[in-house]
Amino acid sequence: MNYLFLQVLTGLQISALYMLIALGLTLIFGTLGVVNFAHGALFMLGAYFAVVISDAFGFSVALVSVPILLFIVGIILERGLIRFFYERSHTDQILVTFGLAIVIGEVLKTIYGANNLPFAKPSWGSGIVKLHEYLPFLEGFVAYPKWRLILVVVSFSTVAALFLLLQFTRFGLIVRAGMRDSQMLAFLGVNITRRFTIVFGIGAVIAAIAGLFGGPITQVEPELGMKLLIPSFLVVVVGGMGSLPGAVLASLLFGMALSFTAKYAEIQQIIIYLLAVVILLVRPRGLMGKKGLME
C-alpha cells in the first residue's frame, strides 16, 4: 500500500513538471499555430532568472519578478521574431525556434558555466512531509519532500487558472474565437494580433512558473531546456496538438509510466516513446486532439 502510494505520488510529481512545460507549448500552438521549440529554453531561462534572483534577494522576490521578466521576454520574442513566422511552414518555425533555443543555451553556458547551479529551496519549502500523520491508510513511516508536493499543487493550480481564463473571461472568449477564425475576428474590428502577443507572453509566464518550482528539483544547467523539451513536446503530440486537457492527460500518463517502470531499466528508458508510438498509431490526432488537425 505504501509502495503503491509512493509510486503514484512520484508519477504525479513527474507529470507536474511535464504538464507545466507542455501547457505553454500547447497553448502557443493552439492559439498562434506556432510550434515553439524554444519553449524549453524559456523554461530554462526562467530557472536561471529564478536561481540568480533567489540567491541575491530571496525566493519571494523571485516569485514575483521572474514571471514578469519572462512575460516581457515573451512579448519581445513574439514581436521581434516569432510573428514573422506565422505564415511560414511548421518546418521553418521549428528551425528558427530550435536555433533560438541553442543560442539561449550557449549564452547561459558562457555566463554561468556548464555545471549545475545549486538552487536552494526557501525554508518554508524544504524538508519532508510525514504523510502517515495525515493519511491514516498508510502504515508506518511514509515521507515525501515538501517541495515536490508544492510543485504538484502549483502545477494543477496553473492548469485550473489557465482553464478559467480561457473559458470564463472576455479575453478568453476572444482568444478562443481567434483560434477558430482569426480573419473573421479581424473583420469584426477586434485587435487579435495584440491578444495573440499576450497569449505568447502567458506561455512564457507558465514557463517561468515551471522554472521557479522545477528548478530546485532538476538543478539549473544549460542543457536542461532540451532535456525537458523533448518529453514535453511528446506530451503535446500524444495529448493532441493544441489541446489543454490532452496535455494534462498525456503528462499524467507519462509520469505514471515512468514511475511504475523504474525497476525495469530496459523498458523505462524507452517507455514514453513506446507509449507515443502506440497511441499515435491507434489515434493519430492524439488523445484529445481535434478531428482533422495534424491527422
Binding site: 509512493l6 509510486q7 505520488l9 512520484t10 508519477g11 510529481q13 513527474i14 513538471l17 515536490r148 528539483i217 532538476t218 538543478q219 536542461l224 532535456k227 525537458l228 515512468l258 514511475s259 523504474a262 523505462q268
Partner: peptide, 8 residues
C-alpha cells in the same frame, strides 16, 4: 534531470 522514480 530527475531521479525521483528511482529514489521512490
Amino acid at each position: 534531470p530527475d531521479f525521483s522514480q528511482y529514489l521512490t
